[in-house]
């Protein structure tokens, strides 16, 4: 049955919707839009749909991906149009394409995610200072953070999961752009990175940053590229 790849944005107040609730939200939107979902077999059939990578509550997504199987071929543009008529505030389909016959799911392919983090600068700061802080952080051979896993504190090195990191000043805000590991092989959370930047001397308050995920990357056989194209 035909499979489709859907790129969507989850912004505004809808960024507070959790991953599980978002799956439910899409299932309902498909049904409202009259798009015929394919279902799994068994006692509790559920739609053959998966969101590429869970997004933490509170983080906005600008180019998120989901995959779905329908029972009939429908024009991509029409899927996008019909879904957008039935999605609530803040969730919007940006593009739809017919997915190829690759075996691996998007979820299995995701390796990295790009983020934009907007922080209010606590004091004025120039480009050079930002570059210095970022440079010193990247020069560390390891960056150990503590994570709570099932009520236990576990130490993790996030340095290998930082693939790109840049910063700039924009209108009194500090904008951080980063590419971080995400998925089965390990994940670096953007909040962890911000905390480290704050520790390294960047004048920001990490509790007041707005985080946007701007893209998902993976290797579909031709090296790492944006999953939408992979």
């Amino acid at each position: 049955m035909p499979k489709y790849k859907i790129m969507f944005a989850k912004t505004g107040m809808s960024r507070f919707i959790s991953h599980l609730d978002l799956s439910r939200l899409f299932e309902r939107a498909f049904r409202r839009a009259g798009l015929p979902m394919a279902f799994s077999k068994g006692f509790n059939p559920h739609p053959k749909m998966s969101i590429a990578a869970p997004l933490a509550v509170g983080i906005a997504g600008e180019r998120e991906l989901l995959e779905i199987e329908l029972t009939e071929e429908i024009n991509s543009g029409e899927i996008a149009r019909r879904l957008n008529e039935k999605l609530p505030e803040g969730v919007k389909v940006l593009a739809v394409q017919r997915a190829g016959e690759q075996k691996k799911s998007l979820m299995a392919l995701v390796e990295r995610a790009a983020y934009r983090i907007e922080c209010t600068a606590a004091e004025s700061v120039d480009q050079q200072e930002i570059d210095q802080v970022i440079g010193s952080l990247l020069n560390c051979s390891s960056i150990i953070v503590q994570r709570k896993v099932k009520n236990k504190i576990k130490e993790t090195d996030i340095r290998p999961g930082i693939w790109a990191l840049e910063g700039r000043v924009d209108n009194g805000n500090i904008i951080i752009e980063a590419e971080l590991s995400t998925g089965n092989k390990g994940t670096v959370r953007p909040e962890e990175l911000i905390k480290e930047l704050e520790k390294a001397g960047l004048p920001i308050n990490c509790a007041c940053c707005r985080i946007y995920r701007t893209g998902l990357y993976g290797d579909g056989g031709e090296g790492i590229k944006e999953l939408w194209q992979a």
Partner: peptide, 11 residues
Amino acid sequence: QKPARYTGGEW
């Protein structure tokens, strides 16, 4: 917890 309790904007 569960901030979407307070956001509104539902379908």
